[in-house]
Structures are given as structure tokens and as C-alpha cells.
Amino acid sequence: MKFAHNFIKDMKVSFKTFYIYIEILMALIFVAILLFVVPENFSSDINMYAHIDSSLQSNEIVEALESDNSSNIILLDSMDEIKYMLEEDRNSIGISISMVDQKILYNVILQGYESQKYRNIIEKSLIAEGIKDLPEYGSNTNIVTLASSSERLSDRLNMLPIFLLLNSAFTGLFIVATYIFMDKEEGTIRAFAVTPAKVWEYLLSKMGVMLVTGLLTGLITTLLVAGLKANYLHLIALLIATNLFGTSIGLFISSFYDSIMKAMGAILVTFMTLAFATTSYFMPSFNPIIIRILPSYPMAFAFREVFLENPDIAYIYSNVAGFTVLAALFFLWSNHRFKKTLTV
């Protein structure tokens, strides 16, 4: 099998070049940062500063506030103090409740960056709060738990899917071009081209090297950060499919260029665009269509499933299948293009 010989040779060469070590080093640096710098969970709770008019203040309110330590409601003496604290602590909101002309007046003080949606919610919930005490009010609040997002990962684990996406799934996207242009530079690609071996054998072998590199970094990182809190079967399936996809895109882009500099420009733009999906990953409420159509969007969430107690198997494997098919298509397309341009 010429492909196998080619692959063995490429692995040999790759272990003698530094790219594979850079990839592994990056994985280790990431692990170190996650384990020693990033806390298990960020404290990103919002503080609420409250002022309640003395005429309204009762012991019951104060007691109610003090009984629960988990909430971050801090009682202050005046509206001005609230404003001062809000300026100091940008991750907070304020509320003042006072009595004016026998009416209860709610003043909500926000930072200004909150969206209109958020403002509306606050307003509506205050109104709801108000009518709750009317005699004819019947509570119809339901608590609905969304099955898929009910499980929460620790903040540390929550970052792992992004690293797997950018470093392991997209290994090939980023460096397969380097390998190809190294062969072009060295001229060995021309020597290969005058043998009976086929272009697809050459390309597939490069894919193999990228796959080994991606699996290596992905597994090292996951083992060190998540330990046994991951489903390795799903992880490997996902890594394989997404890594093949990434490399096939890398090959495809490379097939348009005759120098590494030009190809790298296009690859960087592609990589940045794909990396954009991470914003939606960390802020699930921000998911415009432009981000949802990026292949990296479902990838990130599929990687997340790997770390859940009850992963959504269907979601993971529809990703595996989808990206495998896409990888095959882009591989064939690249092969078709390279047949004409590999040695020119």
C-alpha cells in the first residue's frame, strides 16, 4: 500500500519537524493555564444594591434578606449610596423602594449597557410582583427545565470544548498547508509526482498526520483537565470527524495558492471566522444566524456534550456523520484541484 508507506514517511518527517511539538506544547500550556490560573468556577454573580425607604422597612424584610446567604443583595441607606456602589462595581444593579403619596415607588438603577429586552423583563417582573398580592391573583408560574441545558459544566471544563475545537479539530486547517508548502519548497512533491503513486495517496497521508496530531493533543488535554469526567468514545469519534473536516478545508484552501504566505492569509481569515462561534458558545443568548451557520458552532456544542453526565448522543453523532461527509467531499474536491496544480 503506497498510502501506508507515504503515511509512515510523513509521520517520520513530522516528528523531525517542530510543528507537532508546537501543537503539543500549546496543549500543555493550555492545560497549565486551565489548571493553575483559571479557577474551577468564576464568580460572576451579579450584586444587587438595595435601598428600602425607612417607612417601609420592617424587620421581616431585613430578616428575609439575611436568612439567605447565597444571594448578593446588599442593603444601603440611600439612593446616592447605590449610585456610588454601582459605579464601583460595574457588574451590579440597584433598586430603591420608597413610599410616595401612599404609593410604592420602585426605582431600578441599571448600568446602561443592559439590553432593552433585559429592561423589559425587569419592568414586567416588577409589575408581576406588584399584582401578586392582589386577592384575585392566582399564581401560574411554572418552572420549566430545558433538558439540554440543564447540566452545567464547571467554568474550567466549559473552556475545554473551545480548545478542542480550535487546537485539535482545526490542527489540519492550520498546519496542513505548512506541510504541503514544505514539500513544494523542498521540491520533493515533484519527485513524488513522477512516480506511479497517486495524488490522493499523498493528500490522504497528510490528513493522517494531522489526525494523529489532533488526536494526540485532544486526548492529552482532556485527560489532564477532565480526567475521567469525559466520554472518551464520543470524544474520539468527534475528534476524528472534526479533524478530518478541518484538514480537508486546509487542503482545499491550499489548492488555490502557490505560496505559503498567500495561503496563510486565507487560512487565518477562515480560522478567525470559524473561531467566532466561540462567542455564542460563551454567551448562548447571542446567536445570530451568521454564527449559527458556521460549522464550528455545532462543533463546539457537540464537544460540550462529551463532558456531560447525560450527553445528547443523537446530537454528537449527527455531528460526527455530518462532518465526516463534508470532509470526504472537500477531500475529493481538493484532490481534483491538486491533480492539476500540485507541481506547477
Binding site: 514517511k9 517520520k12 521540491g187 515533484r190 519527485a191
Partner: peptide
């Protein structure tokens, strides 16, 4: 076919 190139092209790492 056998082809020898004007610019040598062998794998430096091998």
C-alpha cells in the same frame, strides 16, 4: 520513467 532534476529534491529530514 526515471527523472533526475536540475535542482536536487530529496527529503532533508530523512
Amino acid at each position: 520513467l526515471g527523472v533526475s532534476f536540475e535542482q536536487s529534491n530529496v527529503y532533508g529530514k530523512l
